[in-house]
C-alpha cells in the first residue's frame, strides 16, 4: 500500500532566531518509505524542501538563522513516499513568533545566606545561552520551584525578569530541591532546569 499519512506534531523556536518542526510517520505499509518536508512562505509561490534533516534528529527539520524569518507564515507539509505512491500530511501554518519555547535557565545555584538572624535560600541563574536577552530580542520571565526532601508538593514562586530569588524561612536541617524555568514574554514555558540541591544547617 502507499504510505500512511504522516502528522506534523510540533514546531518550536528556542530563541526567535531558528526553529525545528517534527513529524510522526504513518504506517509504512511494509515498504521502504522516505519522508520529505516542504514549505512555502506567505505571499510566495515558491516551494522549498527542508534545508536540514540532520541537526534536530530523526523525523525533524531544522531551520537555521538563514532559513528563518519572523512575522511571515510558513505553510508546511510532510510527504511520505514509497514505490506505490505518496501521502501528504495535513498542512500546518506557523509564524515563528508564536512558537517560541526557550531552553531551561542555566547555571542554577542555591546558597544558604545567613546575614540576618534566620538563614534564607538565595537562588540565582542565567538565561539559556541561546536566548539573546541582552539585546532585548527576547524577554524572559522566570519561575522558581522548591521541594523539601520527602514531600510531594512543589512550592512555586514567580520571579519576574529577575535572575535571583530569595526564599525565606527554610526548614532547619532540611534538604531542598530547586528548579527554575523561563518563558518569553509571548510564548511557552521552558522545561524545568535540572535539580539543584541545598541543605539548610540546623539553626535552632
Amino acid at each position: 500500500a502507499p504510505p500512511g499519512k504522516p502528522t506534523l506534531t510540533s514546531c518550536r523556536s528556542p530563541e526567535k532566531e531558528t526553529f525545528t518542526c517534527w513529524w510522526e510517520p504513518g504506517s509504512d505499509g511494509g515498504l521502504p518509505t522516505t519522508h520529505a518536508l516542504y514549505y512555502r512562505k506567505e505571499n510566495s509561490e515558491t516551494v522549498y524542501e527542508c534545508p536540514d534533516y540532520k541537526t534536530a534528529g530523526e523525523n525533524s527539520c531544522f531551520f537555521s538563522k538563514n532559513d528563518t524569518s519572523i512575522w511571515v507564515n510558513y505553510n508546511i507539509t510532510v510527504v511520505a513516499t514509497n514505490v506505490l505512491g505518496r501521502t501528504f500530511s495535513d498542512p500546518v501554518d506557523i509564524d515563528v513568533v508564536y512558537i517560541v519555547m526557550p531552553n531551561p535557565p542555566e547555571e542554577v545555584r542555591v546558597s544558604v545566606t545567613q546575614n540576618t538572624d534566620w538563614p534564607f535560600l538565595r537562588v540565582s541563574w542565567e538565561p539559556p545561552k541561546k536566548a539573546d536577552t541582552r539585546s532585548g530580542w527576547i524577554t524572559l520571565i522566570y519561575e522558581v520551584r522548591i521541594q523539601l526532601e520527602n514531600e510531594d508538593e512543589w512550592e512555586v514562586h514567580p520571579a519576574g525578569q529577575q535572575k535571583v530569588f530569595n526564599i525565606f524561612s527554610p526548614r532547619s536541617g532540611g534538604t531542598y530541591q530547586v528548579q527554575v524555568r523561563c518563558k518569553p514574554d509571548h510564548g511557552f514555558w521552558s522545561e524545568w532546569s535540572p535539580s539543584t540541591y541545598v541543605k539548610v544547617p540546623e539553626y535552632f
Binding site: 526567535k16 532566531e17 538563522k65 528563518t68 524569518s69 519572523i70 512575522w71 511571515v72 539573546d132 539585546s135 530580542w137
Partner: peptide
C-alpha cells in the same frame, strides 16, 4: 518594510 529577523532588527 520592517526587519524580519534579529540580525536585521538589531
Amino acid at each position: 518594510q520592517t526587519p524580519n529577523d534579529k540580525e536585521q532588527a538589531l
